[in-house]
Design a protein around this nucleic acid. Structure first.
Lengths: 334, 334
DNA sequence: TTTAGCACTCTTCCTTTTTGATTGCTAAAC
DNA sequence: GTTTAGCAATCAAAAAGGAAGAGTGCTAAA
């Protein structure tokens, strides 16, 4: 546990550093934050805060900078609640009111709004397929040798895929397919579409493998395919002073360009409503200079995807977390 | 017209500059290219090449750098044909052989392959909707209050959209919709779906506006919506020396992040098979430091989208153009 | 326990100097 | 007439030096 004054000093230093991006000296803390003690006292406290690993010094005669551990304490204990203005609330409301027909679109609107309000780069991804159940499957004939399969899940998500054939498909065949799939699969988890069903269809009806194979292949594919990443405001990062360093800028671009890494980020660990990963708390070496904050897009507690922010460790955690909390609440229907 | 020796020297300078990114001196040309004359002679020629605007000098005592006009001459007259290795050809072949069911996917594969082989950032976009004709329209009922509309065009492109309603839709209504839309629209241009049809449906049948309005709105939207941009290899740019300058790097990120600009780029001017815009040949100020090379994804001369490359003016034009020509040929079915 | 005072450290910024690459010109050579 | 060797002039980039100043840690007094 930390004494009250140390907490106040740590908070002041981190707040100051988040604002200025410059190492913070005992002098500015004395001047700008009314803590009722002199810069010498603050210096003494800083030595101890450094000893327990919350602060760091770039070099002997410079001010202090928060360490990852310092940010962690800040996020867990010192964060400002509801750090969001009326104006921002209004803006978010207006954005989220947009009528959409597909959930993916709503996730994207939330993602871009998040980036606009926080001025950081935001990313999102759709829900994992294997948590969803099949509500309905429909096959539609397009032309004579092309079929579209449409799958509606219980979370209201619609997946569709096109299947091409080397032989003509009849309306009757389509009807049979519709009948079988709906009877066999309604209410089952999405990934139940597999071998057993294929064999059943094959034995029950006199379908040639030429017809069944491509269907099963494509369904398998559409179900297991990773949902699309959505990225917004990559350029926003370049306004920040940390991106003056070419090294950092390049790492950042490499990072958001490597879709697997971002996907992993968005798919890991949802112990809390809002998840904060600071610097090297991420096991991935590539991420050591950045912080990631994520939350789940939920509606009536159904998982509709994940939305996150990627920025420098020196991130305005209070603002980002407050905005996320608000957006999350709104998405979940107030 | 340029004398043979001047051409050779210009080519040597541009080749050298494309390789090294450093201003080229008369000395290295004498040393590395066997032109049979001394550096003094090369210097004299350089003065004249500068006079006609093909070369520039960063400062008095530095080597020469090609101007946009110089690159233009290079592209028009000096370019190496078939600057593509057997290995690259094999790689492209293997990539383009992937079985796909949707054309968009093939465009994307071609785009990422282009980026991989050339090491530049590549972008692509689907075809413009208004050039396409309707082949078939199908409505599919999902649940009781959701309809999916599927439009197949004569270029084989499938567009689908979801429409939600405040009242239940019957199978019979769906059948009627299918009948009317297919009778009225088969063979017509995509953007023919509009007011007149709406009125027709409304007067002929006793549909409430509650049903027709959302349908027309969504169809209108899906038809007029800009096709999705696809971007690949943004990080590749950061390997290039010109991106050492933070200013250039930031401009580049801003550029590719501004979807409208990229879209405009891909939608303009297709006089030739392969279109090259060098530096300020683009009317857009933002592009003055970059070059853009684009070509149409065609199959059996049907327009299926546009693929392009964005990179520094100092681009390996020979390589990029050769690779594009090859990919274009392959896409068009050999 | 707090704080004023001060020596010490180290970065940052500015100026100056050095270095070296490259040119343009001149005059000789071909 | 064209080509080339030779060389002074130019200028960026790198290196070196120096001054300024911000900030710390420690000591000793409050």
């Amino acid at each position: 546990m930390l004494e009250e004054r140390k907490k106040k000093i740590l908070q002041a230093i981190i707040d100051e550093y988040i604002n200025t991006a410059e190492p913070v000296s005992s002098g500015v803390i004395e001047k700008n934050y009314r803590l009722g003690c002199s810069s010498a006292t603050i210096r003494n406290e800083m030595v101890e805060l450094e000893k327990i690993g919350y602060l760091e010094k770039p070099h002997t005669s410079s001010g202090r900078v928060p360490s990852a551990k310092g940010y962690r304490f800040y996020v867990d204990e010192l964060i400002k609640e509801d750090d969001i203005s009326l104006q921002e609330i209004k803006y978010i409301q207006s954005k989220l009111e947009t009528k959409v027909n597909e959930i993916e679109e709503l996730t994207q609107i939330a993602t871009s709004t998040l980036s606009e309000v926080t001025h950081y780069t935001s990313v999102s991804i759709g829900p994992r397929a294997n948590f969803q159940n099949i509500e309905e499957v429909k096959f539609v004939l397009l032309g004579t040798r092309m079929l579209m399969a449409v799958i509606l899940t219980d979370t209201g998500i619609v997946k569709e895929t096109i299947i091409k054939f080397d032989e003509d498909i009849t309306e009757e065949q389509v009807n049979t397919l519709n009948f079988i799939f709906n009877n066999k699969l309604k209410g089952k988890p999405l990934d139940e579409i597999d071998k057993p069903l294929e064999e059943y269809i094959f034995s029950e009806m006199n379908y040639s493998l030429n017809v069944i194979k491509p269907i099963m292949q494509q369904l398998d594919r559409v179900i297991n395919e990773e949902s699309k990443l959505y990225l917004e405001g990559a350029n926003k990062a370049f306004e920040l002073p940390e991106f003056k360093s070419l090294e950092v800028a390049r790492n950042f671009i490499n990072l958001i360009d490597t879709k697997e890494v971002v996907r992993d980020l968005l798919n890991t660990g949802f112990a809390k409503d809002i998840n904060v990963y600071i610097g090297d708390e991420n096991e991935n070496e590539q991420l050591k200079d950045f912080s990631i904050i994520t939350f789940k897009h939920r509606y009536q507690d159904k998982d509709l995807g994940t939305i996150g922010i990627i920025g420098p460790k020196r991130m305005d955690y209070s603002k980002v977390i407050s905005v996320m909390k608000y957006i999350s609440k709104k998405l979940n229907g107030q």
